[in-house]
């Protein structure tokens, strides 16, 4: 479950014969040619992992799993990209939108915060109150898995970028 070694990932993509079925079905590639699933695999096969992780391309996968379902060689690219994103996050390269979500998860145990407007709307429909999740338990899990450390170091990295953007 922990991040797979790069050798293992390369083993999984070895059956790929570059037919491009993954690219043909990819909803992102048809609109943004920067994310080319076939070429991602080619780069991986040639050991150019640094090139892949240099930019945020792997984060532009929308995880629809079409590539994994269509692949005639059963290469599960969507989940290989999950592994690569885990690598990328470990290196401190995580898009702001994902980090924002992770911050709320750590704070509330959910990925949204309850707004006053929604509370009012819930009352209008006589919905029962929201059962609060076991936040202590969730936060303990986040600490044990190392999620906390990863989030803190990612946020420290992110703050530097944000300051430089403001200066610019």
């Amino acid at each position: 479950m922990a991040i797979q070694s790069m050798d293992k990932i390369v083993c999984q993509i070895r059956p790929c014969y570059q037919c491009g079925t993954c690219a043909g079905g990819c909803p992102v590639f048809r609109n943004n040619p920067d994310l080319n699933p076939r070429m991602l695999i080619e780069k991986l096969l040639f050991g150019q992992i640094d090139k892949i992780l240099q930019n945020q391309d792997v984060w532009n996968c929308c995880f629809c799993l079409t590539c994994s379902q269509h692949c005639p060689q059963s290469v599960d690219l969507a989940h290989i990209l999950i592994e690569l994103k885990n690598y990328s996050a470990k290196e401190g390269i995580t898009p702001k939108s994902i980090l924002d979500e992770m911050k709320i998860l750590k704070k509330t145990g959910m990925t949204f915060e309850l707004s006053k407007m929604v509370l009012k709307r819930r009352k209008k429909m006589n919905l029962p109150g929201i059962l609060p999740p076991d936040l202590n338990g969730i936060q303990k899990i986040l600490k044990t898995t190392g999620f906390d450390d990863r989030l803190n170091s990612s946020l420290a990295g992110k703050q530097i970028t944000e300051t430089s953007e403001e200066e610019a």
Binding site: F63, N86, A89, I98, L142, T145, F147
Partner: peptide, 12 residues
Amino acid sequence: DPLGVQSFDKET
């Protein structure tokens, strides 16, 4: 979330 959380840390 299968996308955000899994991408950030699969074990979590």
